[in-house]
Design a binder for these strands. Structure first.
Length: 434
RNA sequence: GCCGUCGUAGCUCAGUCUGGUAGAGCCCCCGGCUGUUAACCGGGUGGUCUCCGGUUCGAAUCCGGACGACGGCGCCA
């Protein structure tokens, strides 16, 4: 088959090549044959289109190949782009030639697959329209986060993935053997960020975090991508504004650049465009009052759980910000509220649709002795954190920061039932393959 | 960590209560059909009933155990 003018399916669907003779290549999505005609629906990374192959319009071997090729066979098709109401999508390619690059074996995924089976064949399911739409949005969201922080004067710096200690207590760390000694996979850049922030002042990074928590929920992964920022000479209010800013910026970019994908997943670009600062903000105490009014009682000092988060975000179209949590249950590095010693200057950004906490952040404790005391209260040995504590010995200044779960953000933007679809190959307690 | 559900053909499931030769639809293969839209019509191939043990003349089915997965809660981003 002689090479023609190669085009993408997406371009054809935009009406760019009507009447032209072009060539496209991709994978067979469906085939139907009716007597002397074969309808071969082809997908590439930009869309799907029907190629109509008439027995009398192509070489005999091409028609035979079209009839024989199974779903997901790789093909090259040459033909004339035609606008036709009978074709799904409104455009089709009237083929003059077809070559099968690879005859696929019987493709295991058919109609009505179970969730469990799709996870077993995830390496094949990633070819689906739904998955590729999410991947494109993920691409855009990641770019937007980089764009936001760089635009705000933050340096991208990289912490290690292999660490000696954790930041949230040692029980949720994956352990690994490091030349005969114990090491761990990072669960947060927290300790390193607080060392680096005294050098670079405004820093951020996006990278993987690992949590060895056997969480069986629709919003937990054991390996997830963490967008984290840390800022010197800044308090809680300033970093809350950055949290609102970065979430909003990601929503704007996705709405502008991926409107078709957004619609395909059940959101609208308008919904995302409306996600602009400021978000509704309330303190933990105010949240308890709101919950009580809704008939949900929560004892003071308990963290907000799924039930409470859902009640608080019910009917919201933007995430909400909850601030000033009780000090009990909070990590040792979070700063006390000078006005209320029982509270810490910590905040969460909570998304609706059951996604829950998208961002968690705080102002950091600057006083050496207070941190050492906090570590002991959590059952940690301050000696193991000695290098970290140097950040409170040599020029300790006010600083604050937050971590954002990229998959949580994508889950919320794409309105996904389960966080595992926000990443191509999810890692959960039950699965690390494929 | 706790609670619940499930495991039968490549896929989706019925059959299990009440033990007696392993079933359907889809996929695939063969045949038909010149505009199909998850095409349709006719025929055919396809099984370690998750595994181990027990009861029984006989177990997919009853009993005991193991393993695996999914869903919910907790923990978190």
């Amino acid at each position: 088959m002689r090479r023609g003018f190669m085009v993408s399916i997406g371009d054809i669907l935009k009406g760019r090549h009507v009447g032209e003779t072009v060539e496209l290549r991709g994978w067979i999505y469906r085939t139907r044959t009716v007597g002397g005609k074969a309808f071969v629906v082809v997908r590439d990374s930009t869309g799907i289109i029907q190629a109509t192959i008439s027995k009398d319009a192509v070489p005999p071997e091409a028609f035979a190949a079209a009839e024989k090729a199974l779903i997901e066979s790789a093909v090259e098709v040459k033909g004339t782009v035609t606008k036709d109401k009978r074709a799904p999508g409104g455009y089709e390619l009237r083929a003059t030639d077809l070559r099968v690059v690879h005859f696929a074996e019987k493709f295991p995924i058919q109609e009505d697959p179970s969730e469990e089976f799709l996870l077993d064949v995830r390496h094949l399911w990633v070819r689906s329209q739904r998955m590729t739409a999410i991947f494109r949005i993920r691409h855009t969201a990641f770019a937007a986060v980089h764009e936001y922080f760089r635009g705000q004067g933050f340096w991208e710096v990289h912490p290690p993935m292999i660490t000696s200690a954790g930041s949230e207590g040692g029980t949720t760390l994956f352990e690994l053997e490091y030349f005969g000694r114990k090491a761990h996979l990072t669960q947060s850049w927290q300790l390193y960020a607080e060392a680096l922030v005294l050098a670079m002042e405004r820093i951020y990074y996006i990278g993987p975090s690992f949590r060895a928590e056997k969480s069986r929920t629709t919003r937990h992964l054991t390996e997830y991508w963490h967008a984290e920022m840390e800022q010197a000479w800044a308090g809680m209010d300033e970093v809350i504004k950055h949290a609102e800013g970065v979430i909003s910026h990601a929503c704007q970019r996705v709405a502008e650049e991926r409107p078709e994908d957004v619609v395909a997943l059940g959101r609208t670009p308008e919904f995302l465009k409306a996600v602009k600062p400021p978000f509704e903000r309330l303190t933990y105490d105010e949240a308890l009052k709101q919950l009580k009014a809704k008939g949900v009682d929560l004892e003071w000092g308990k963290d907000l759980r799924t039930l409470e988060e859902r009640a608080l975000t019910e009917g919201t179209t933007k995430p909400i910000v909850v601030t000033h949590y009780p000090r009990v249950t909070q990590a040792f590095y979070k700063a006390r509220d000078p006005k209320h010693p029982d509270l810490v200057l910590a905040f969460d950004v909570i998304g609706g649709d059951g996604v829950g906490e998208i961002v968690g952040g705080s102002e950091r404790e600057t006083d050496l002795e207070t941190i050492q005391k906090g570590l002991k209260e959590q059952g940690e040995d301050p000696k193991a954190y000695d290098w970290y504590l140097d950040s409170r010995r040599y020029g300790s200044v006010q600083h604050a920061g937050f971590g954002m779960g990229m998959e949580r953000l994508i889950q919320w933007i794409c309105k996904l039932d389960h966080i595992r679809d926000a990443v191509p190959f999810p890692r959960t307690p039950a699965r690390f393959a494929p």
